[in-house]
Design a protein around this nucleic acid. Structure first.
Lengths: 329, 329
DNA sequence: ACAGCCTATGCTACCGGTTGCACAAGGATG
DNA sequence: CATCCTTGTGCAACCGGTAGCATAGGCTGT
């Protein structure tokens, strides 16, 4: 019955309770000066009519929507699902909700940011997406944050895992295991520069006097990784042509692992070691048992949400994660 | 500069162009009667000031937000990420955006639906979540859809994969391979009833005169599945105690597969066959090579979005998927 | 020259809240 | 008993659009 009738507004409740609509509003504001008896009367009438304040109208008046745009351009990497879970949960704890925006060929950053701003979102979160400075400029006065990626743009705060200690930890681990001819497998070139993992890994080995070949998978995708490794390894002198494969993230590593074992007939870790980055759930599966570097996703999200609620100053944060040693290395 | 100044409204553009704010609005409406010269002048002024209509104000006036609430309560199952990608893309093609709402212990269906309605969303999508009739009643006049789950509630439209032909196909496949003592591994009991996979699998084998034992993993989680299988199988007479394991979804199947191979030392498929449901990306990995039943996620999403835009009558749809034969059976 | 019509523009009222001010009622104070 | 203060309530104005009516002014037809 209640569902079929027109929407209930504060004026309706006011009429039912015999007060003005402003008094109704006050009844819902714990800090407002209002007689206890009146409040009780109003709340009873509101409950009776199933009144809910219209947040659209409130947002228009207060200039705050408690809405955050979350821009994602790559739904291939499994770590994004649990991280989205953390992010939405953290936002909800703060009374906010996230609008999930899919950046793709027909809806680019430009369109997404324009749309988000028209909707008056309180903030924009670029979650693991590629971006260019001029794109962020479109955000105008809307605060812009980058999650899980380095931001080289001044004024754009980012929270991500510091690649320097991470790649050093992975490098030292491999070096300690006797690795001397490692290769690096990365995804799209543009994104890689924003991650710095390749750069740091290569730089670590340069210190050891080793030049690391870099393989391009082109996309962050298990199958593409498998193909890239399958094509590349046989072209390198030696059997196998390298003794370790460091991958930009776990999903590439899983593809690589499968290609090494099932297409190239190699034993991991005996013939070649494999390490990834992220520590996604499947990395722990005995079938893969992948050595990787765990990103502190939960902490990253918590820090980001504190920044966008203003509970913490907005400044770029580089967090460190943990080396997770498993059987693949 | 533009970012630091106050928000630009139609009145500002009107002032700049020397017209009234209503004329500004008309300039942006292709169907409005307006002199071409005026329109040009207004659009120029708008571009100059970087004016964007405030969709909040528009929504308040038109009573349409073009916002859809997407309720998710389980972020464990990897199929949800690509499906979210499809869903957001499809919504965006229709000029809508999705608010991703995380249902959990501190923010339940009740709170989520109340909040979503206060925000005046055009529709609510329950994406693979458990729900009770009284919860949906809270949606009031806001249309409610269930994606990837059966809805037993009258008036609530759902789009899901028909478990009848699906489990029959899996059952017949296993039967044809000589399986005679299969078991079924499922997740939480409450959700299972809304999926019907267990029911239909058991019923298929009943027709063959076989009673299927049902194992509870408790949660849709790889590790829980592995533990459940590891605990259960040794308690059953015979080595192994069953000759096939059908799992409610792929993520359970991957956990089961690992437990069988690495904890119980069994060979798959020689000693025991394993089949899943969903066809997630990792099911195709050579390490698992899992036989499964592919859900037509893309079609499901497309149909759902057409329903919520009104391009198609809202009625429960049971789609069929495809049996995907691989090496695990 | 004037009715009749059409086009382009302005205006009022409204969507459902918020904000700050005005003011009435009642109690404390001198 | 007048004054001051406190508390509680009503109200106008506003947030930035939309919808539909009113009307000015140009053009056509007779």
């Amino acid at each position: 019955m209640a569902g079929l009738t027109k929407k209930v507004t504060s004026a309706d409740v006011a009429r039912a309770a015999g007060v003005s609509k402003w008094t109704v509003i006050r009844a819902f504001d714990p800090a407002a000066p209002i007689a206890e008896m009146t409040r009780t009367k109003v709340l009873a009438a509101a409950a009776q009519l199933d009144y809910r304040p219209n947040l659209l109208a409130r947002s228009l008046a207060t200039q705050r929507t408690h809405l955050v745009a979350i821009l994602v351009d790559d739904f291939e990497n499994p770590y994004k699902l649990p991280t989205l879970a953390h992010l939405t949960a953290a936002l909800q704890r703060e009374g906010m909700l996230g609008i999930l925006i899919n950046i793709n060929d027909s809806f680019d950053h430009f369109a997404a940011i324009t749309d988000a701003r028209s909707r008056q979102v309180d903030a924009i979160v670029l979650f693991g997406t590629v971006f260019r400075p001029e794109i962020v400029a479109r955000a105008g006065s809307t605060p812009c944050f980058v999650l899980a990626r380095e931001s080289t743009i001044p004024g754009v705060t980012s929270v991500y895992t510091d690649p320097v200690p991470a790649m050093r930890a992975l490098g030292e681990h491999l070096h300690g295991r006797g690795v001397r001819r490692p290769a690096f497998l990365r995804g799209p070139r543009t994104q890689s520069t924003a991650l710095g993992r390749c750069r740091e890994f290569v730089s670590f080995w340069a210190e050891q006097g080793v030049q690391v070949p870099v393989i391009n998978a082109g996309v962050y995708d298990r199958e593409s990784a498998a193909e890239a490794v399958h094509r590349w390894l046989p072209t390198v002198p030696g059997v196998p042509g390298c003794d370790a494969l460091a991958c930009e993230n776990d999903i590439l590593a899983l593809g690589a692992l499968d290609a090494l074992r099932y297409r190239l007939g190699l034993r991991v870790p005996q013939d070649i070691a494999v390490v990834g980055f992220d520590d996604i759930d499947l990395a722990a599966a005995p079938s893969f048992d992948l050595t990787t570097y765990r990103q502190p996703f939960r902490d990253m999200v918590e820090a980001l949400v504190q920044m966008l609620t203003g509970k913490r100053p907005a400044e770029t944060l580089r967090l460190t994660g943990d080396l997770v040693l498993r059987g693949s290395s």
